[in-house]
Write a protein that binds this DNA or RNA. Sequence first.
DNA 1: TAGATTGTTAATCGATTAACAATC
DNA 2: TAGATTGTTAATCGATTAACAATC
Lengths: 242, 242
Amino acid sequence: MRKKRKGCDVPEATIHRLPLYLEKLKLLQAIGVEDVSSRQLAESLDIKASQLRHDFHYFGGFSRPGRPYQVEKLVPALEKIIGIDEPVPTIIVGAGHLGQALANYQNLALQGFPVCGIFDVNPRLIGLEIRGQPIRDMEEMPRVVKEKNALIGVITVPAQYAQEVADRMVEAGIVGIFNFAPTDLKLPEGVALRNERMAVGLMALSFRVKCILESRLQHSPADEVGPPGESAAEGDGNDQVS
Amino acid sequence: MRKKRKGCDVPEATIHRLPLYLEKLKLLQAIGVEDVSSRQLAESLDIKASQLRHDFHYFGGFSRPGRPYQVEKLVPALEKIIGIDEPVPTIIVGAGHLGQALANYQNLALQGFPVCGIFDVNPRLIGLEIRGQPIRDMEEMPRVVKEKNALIGVITVPAQYAQEVADRMVEAGIVGIFNFAPTDLKLPEGVALRNERMAVGLMALSFRVKCILESRLQHSPADEVGPPGESAAEGDGNDQVS
DNA sequence: TAGATTGTTAATCGATTAACAATC
DNA sequence: TAGATTGTTAATCGATTAACAATC
């Protein structure tokens, strides 16, 4: 017994690859592929086969050794691991442009996160319907969370209200918070947090863009547009320079 | 001369921390703080001071040794490194809910990414104004990119159109692509890509939520809601279990 | 059997952290 | 000077990759 705290001491990097594996496997499933080897699957994701097997090894028992993976078995196995083998009821607090956009985004439900409540404090928004669902008064949030057993809460309010919203979510029983507000939320133990900061992503991209522009200047001074290359690439799920 | 390809061989992890440093420093600047030590700054971001200094060391010359950092100097230095010392003109292709939400998000411009064009192919959307800017026909995109010197393109179209949009952006001269569509884009060399997949983030969160629920069951079987803890935490900019 | 494949351990690589001389 | 701080190198840690026995 080394470090076996539940089934949860899995590296961050591995956790972030699980959804990518699942996505690719669902595509294969859709076109009727039955078996897939670690080499094939890894290749299509631009990673090493040994990394994929190493990742799967944290959970184990996806295949018999010597035989490739069966898509039909691997898909539900990954869904179980990720925790979306049954729908994860999700609420959205903040019915501004972003909140409404998310509520409208049908893919969320398809991927296992049905929106079971949208809330705001703005009386002008309350009552509006989005995909058959009314925007509700924030006061109703705790009741809805309990009724629908909502587990995940998405925060799309302005930064100054985010902490208060988070506190009320936690009190209502929300277990995971998906935060779009650019603030550092303080949460009690036993609540998961993921910050989704678009500005951070844009700035990382900007850094690369700056590097590319600089290298263009070096290679072809006085050119308006650099010469287009040819190679292509996909990444670890986020970003890279092609 | 070991590995000195331009100024761009900086670890991913470091690049992603730069925006966080900048954000915190701007907050300090706003409340009139003049000097800040690596220890203070690192503490407020829940990282080690040595990591912060190590990160800065890739660029160097932010302070004289022995003296703390001067906020007034560090802010513009970081902006320069990230590439937002002057505004980075940005276009959005796809004026659906998400595209409109982003176009409305004033913070983008404030953080250095003014939206200089919003495009779609849907005639019902073309002509609508968002914050004084009309949604334009996709055909106009190349012209606008050239006129405004747009560098970054945001893709908020359905997945099946994303590759075509990306191709046209690259042809028009876009250097960095911020992709919200859940597809693997193939890009020529010399174009930076960042995928912003909300589903991936939600699934990583779901994994944690599942772990938390399991551990609650272990500790207090037959309890409806686990006992709230107390500690708090901030992360590396993304996610963690508190 | 021969070839292909997995699960699993060991080797490599890179990022984080610690240590400390140089500086103020 | 003594205390605090940085820049920078070395030590540690963790994640990726390679290797290979076991299996089909």
